[in-house]
Amino acid sequence: MNAKIVIPGEEIESRGKKIGSNVYTRNGRSYSAVLGLLNENETYVKVVPLAGKYMPKEDDLVLGLVEDVKYAGAFLDISSVNSAFLPATEMGRNDDPKAGDLILARVSEVDEVNSARLISGSIVGRGKVIEVSSAKIPRVLGTKKSMLNLLKDKTGCKIIVGMNGRIWVQGENAPVVILAIRKIEEEAHKSGLTNKIETFLEKEIKKEKKSD
């Protein structure tokens, strides 16, 4: 994935192609709208952003922090433009959210001002939470979740990845997972990442064992 880096306003060759996200047209010519990687084939062009705020999409799993609890439900900070509402009816019977709790929920709908409504919420237990840019989440997951499975298998940790950029980790090797995710974050725009992370994890776990 050593794609070309494009700058906002840079012209993109799009003759006879479908225009994907983050590309805009003016007078029949196409330009990139963000700083990102050019992704194109014979039929379409789009730009994958390298940074940016999380914009909720239907069906995304997100990890939200409870900001405020009302009778009808809770407002969660999902590190987006607006906080998202999770109705009380969509929470587990025994879940009693309080400000500061971490909740895993699914986005059911997004309105015209990018506010999300959430469903199927459940409080997440003890663990470590880190935040990465939501633009980098696809690399943390990998193709068909290959990267996530690698992290889970090598370290034996439980990991929940919220599409909004919050990642919850629980287990003995949690610090190693966090180091690995930081490395993915740094090198998200480069190719051959899964292999690199595999060797990195093996090395780190060996180190941990030695120090024990």
Binding site: I7, P8, G9, A135
Partner: peptide, 11 residues
């Protein structure tokens, strides 16, 4: 602004 990933027509 470009570094923040904000969509822009141009710099």
């Amino acid at each position: 602004l470009a570094d923040a990933g904000i969509p822009m027509r141009d710099l």
